[in-house]
Nucleic acid binder design. Structure first.
Length: 117
DNA sequence: AACCTGACTTGCA
DNA sequence: ATGCAAGCCAGGT
């Protein structure tokens, strides 16, 4: 009866928008990087790039969530917010085999993570 | 319920 | 190429 739950067409349980971000980021293969917008799109929220970064900031699972593999759309890293600094992050990515265009920019065209490929 | 902030993205000058 | 501003969405207070 009632049958009026209405207001429940939400997209599946969002048991934590953040949890979803970690799930995607954890799947990023080594030697590749993804942008916040890309991770957001993979989780079904191409407009939530900001929340992706916010979720990584919360990073409840350091060591499990390779937040260092997530960079801006330009391939540049935000200095001061990384776990040890954009510099350390750049070295880490480079050590994984990621190509760099500049000391502060990653070559997305070469190291962009292509999900499903 | 409302307001504010925030690891973003894109466009224009 | 660099700098500034506006837009969008979710979480916290």
């Amino acid at each position: 009866m009632d049958a009026h739950p209405a207001t429940k067409e939400s997209p599946r349980r969002d048991e934590g928008f953040f949890e979803r971000v970690y799930e995607v980021v954890e799947q990023i293969p080594r030697g590749c990087v993804a942008t916040y917008g890309q991770v957001a799109a993979l989780m079904g929220a191409p407009r939530c790039a900001r929340q992706v970064g916010y979720a990584l900031h919360a990073n409840p699972r350091p060591g499990i969530v390779p937040c260092h593999r997530v960079v801006f759309a330009d391939g540049h890293i935000c200095e001061g917010f990384a776990f040890g600094g954009a510099e350390a992050q750049r070295e880490l990515l480079e050590a994984e085999g990621v190509a760099f265009k500049d000391d502060t920019h990653v070559d997305m065209k070469r190291s962009r993570w292509q999900a499903g490929l």
